[in-house]
Design a protein around this nucleic acid. Structure first.
Lengths: 249, 249
DNA sequence: CGTTATGTTGACATTAATCAAGCACGGTGG
DNA sequence: CCACCGTGCTTGATTAATGTCAACATAACG
């Protein structure tokens, strides 16, 4: 996910500042903004567009993608409610964003956003946190892409999508995106995606393929297929941290 | 590169603050710190270690990597002089960092670093910029990894390494890292890396393979092999930007 | 109810991984 | 100075995986 998986951190309108509003967190900046609706497939902005606004996803799912010269499409992330779009604060958007499902967004002018953030140090903290998470997500995608087998990639993808489910730790993983989206995210073809899903179904790890979701039957098997996974399991870090002295000075 | 390609922005000790030093930019925080030397292969810190320090690379090259459960190694970036290590400001380092060549670093305590940055808004700006660049780099790697052929990956890798050369726009690209490092960065095997280099040499795009560098003979051919490339060429963005109205509200 | 999107499946081609030697450079010690 | 050894790199033969091309099935849409 190029998306920040950070959930909403809703409301909590705490301190109140002068002419500024009661901006408790980044989300509250968007709270009063009108909702804009986007139909599936509809673009929100394009890579290279002047970055005039920051968006917050209120509902639905979007894809962030980059197009290569020869027409290939690379999906660099999926965005979910609570995520911010265009947060990287460059002059131009880094990628194109399109609605996957029906989407509701709120937008905020980038300049004002920057001003607000500069004014309030707690917002700055939150923005750092977002950027940091977005960065981690981008790196996680890189790790995912360098996994060898199609099976491994898909197993990881399912776990990833499940993790984002709003707390619901059910076995049913929502997949609002098409197979082509999945393929372009994992760096493979639709055929291989399809075949691999069938294979996982045949081996009983998941239920027979549905169009827009996957039901995991053997979670542990799926986890072991996802295999050499690392992230998120690392809460304690019981590293040896031994003799390897830091070098001279 | 998980590295920020941002060059040094050296010295420039401008304004002077009270008990704080004349902190003109992030780099100047490190200026008075002693240099620490690391031999090739030596680790600086491990993924999961408590992030006690931020480092600035003064000289040499390092690799940032993550290890998967089954022992596979994924290099998420190479770091060069001027880059910062551990800038993501999490409680724990996100990846292991090891010296590739002989390296000189300066370290700065993370807490103090955060304090300094929080105190000076221009430092904050710079830190945002760094994070942003690091994020872009992580995304670029994802794009690189999802490229189909080995040839395409390597062509891009060479161009990438060349871009980082300190202004020297020569045809000789420095490669301080081993083939294994390259393989683990591009998500392929050493054999394929080796074979592909040989192939590029046979077709006259590069000179016969040297151990620690590549001489590009036909830059334009290399560029076309790198193909669907996007980033860095996009200065103007002459997008049509037409009828696609943003949706209702 | 036909038409288009999307998804599945099959046969085949191509690429890169794997297994296995062999080569070349750099360092060490005789 | 040279023989020796180890590491890193190259090359070859073979295999396994995924991409490609093509047909078909199914769901979605007007």
């Amino acid at each position: 996910m190029s998306a920040q998986v950070v959930p909403m951190q809703e409301g909590r309108t705490g301190a109140m500042c002068s002419q500024a509003l009661p901006v408790a967190d980044l989300s509250s900046l968007f709270a009063r903004r009108p909702v804009e609706r986007f139909a599936p497939g509809q673009p929100v902005f394009w890579e290279g567009d002047e970055a005039t606004h920051i968006f917050e996803v209120a509902d639905g799912m979007l894809r962030a993608l980059r197009l290569l010269g020869d027409g290939r499409r690379i999906i660099v992330g999926f965005l979910r409610p609570g995520d911010l779009l265009g947060v990287s604060l460059k002059e131009r958007y880094l990628y194109t964003v399109e609605a996957v499902s029906a989407v509701e967004l709120r937008r905020f002018p980038r300049r004002r956003f920057e001003d607000e953030v500069a004014r309030h140090s707690h917002l700055q903290q939150q923005l750092f946190s977002r950027l940091r998470d977005e960065m981690t997500a981008a790196q996680d995608q890189a790790v995912l892409l360098s996994r060898r087998s199609a099976e491994e990639k898909l197993a990881n993808f399912f776990l990833m999508m499940r993790r984002n489910e709003n707390c619901t730790r059910t076995a049913v993983v929502d997949l609002p995106m098409t197979r082509l989206d999945i393929a372009d995210y994992l760096g493979m073809t639709i055929e291989t995606v399809s075949r691999t899903i069938t294979k996982l179904a045949n081996s009983g790890v998941i239920a027979p393929p549905e169009r827009r979701s996957v039901t995991v039957l053997k979670m542990e098997t799926l986890r072991s297929l996802a295999d050499g996974d690392e992230s998120e399991h690392w809460m304690p870090s019981p590293m040896p941290r031994a003799q390897y002295a830091f070098a001279s000075a």
